[in-house]
Amino acid sequence: VTLFVALYDYEAITEDDLSFHKGEKFQILNSSEGDWWEARSLTTGETGYIPSNYVAPVD
């Protein structure tokens, strides 16, 4: 499982989006939707859509 880490803070715009803070880690559930990925936060356990350009793979 490839994990991703937030590079910036993000505040949800719609109820389907997931708010997060810089440094938060995610498991990507679906990355086939283009620039918005469905993800689960490993910090909160919540799922929602995140902007793919706000995250990077964890080394």
Score class of each variant (00 low, 15 high):
Val1Arg: 08
Val1Asn: 14
Thr2Trp: 09
Leu3Pro: 06
Val5Trp: 07
Val5Leu: 06
Ala6Cys: 02
Ala6Val: 01
Ala6Asp: 01
Leu7Pro: 00
Tyr8Thr: 06
Tyr8Ser: 07
Asp9Ala: 06
Asp9Arg: 03
Tyr10Met: 03
Tyr10Arg: 05
Tyr10Ser: 02
Tyr10Asp: 01
Glu11Gln: 12
Glu11Met: 10
Glu11Gly: 05
Ala12Asn: 05
Ala12Thr: 04
Ala12Trp: 02
Ile13Glu: 13
Ile13Tyr: 09
Ile13Trp: 09
Ile13Pro: 08
Thr14Trp: 14
Thr14Cys: 15
Asp16Cys: 15
Asp17Ser: 15
Leu18Ala: 01
Leu18Phe: 07
Ser19Pro: 05
Phe20Ser: 01
Phe20His: 01
Phe20Pro: 00
His21Gln: 12
His21Cys: 12
His21Leu: 11
Lys22Met: 08
Gly23Ala: 03
Gly23Asp: 06
Gly23Lys: 02
Glu24Arg: 01
Glu24Pro: 00
Glu24Ser: 04
Glu24Thr: 07
Lys25Gly: 04
Lys25Cys: 10
Lys25Asn: 07
Phe26Tyr: 01
Phe26Gln: 00
Gln27Glu: 15
Ile28Cys: 04
Ile28Ser: 02
Leu29Thr: 07
Leu29Val: 08
Asn30Gln: 08
Asn30Val: 07
Asn30Pro: 04
Ser31Thr: 13
Ser32Glu: 11
Ser32Tyr: 10
Ser32His: 11
Ser32Phe: 10
Glu33Cys: 12
Glu33Lys: 15
Glu33Arg: 15
Asp35Val: 11
Asp35Met: 13
Trp36Arg: 15
Trp36Leu: 08
Trp37Phe: 07
Trp37Asn: 01
Trp37Ser: 02
Glu38Pro: 06
Glu38Gln: 14
Ala39Pro: 00
Ala39Asn: 00
Arg40Trp: 06
Arg40Phe: 08
Ser41Asp: 03
Ser41Thr: 03
Ser41Arg: 14
Leu42Val: 09
Leu42Phe: 06
Thr43Ile: 09
Thr44Gln: 03
Gly45Ile: 02
Glu46Val: 10
Glu46Thr: 08
Glu46Ala: 13
Thr47Asp: 04
Thr47Leu: 08
Tyr49Met: 14
Ile50Ser: 00
Pro51Tyr: 07
Pro51Gly: 04
Pro51Arg: 08
Pro51Glu: 02
Pro51Ala: 04
Ser52Met: 09
Ser52Lys: 14
Asn53Leu: 09
Asn53Phe: 09
Tyr54Arg: 07
Tyr54Gly: 06
Val55Ser: 01
Val55Glu: 01
Pro57Ile: 09
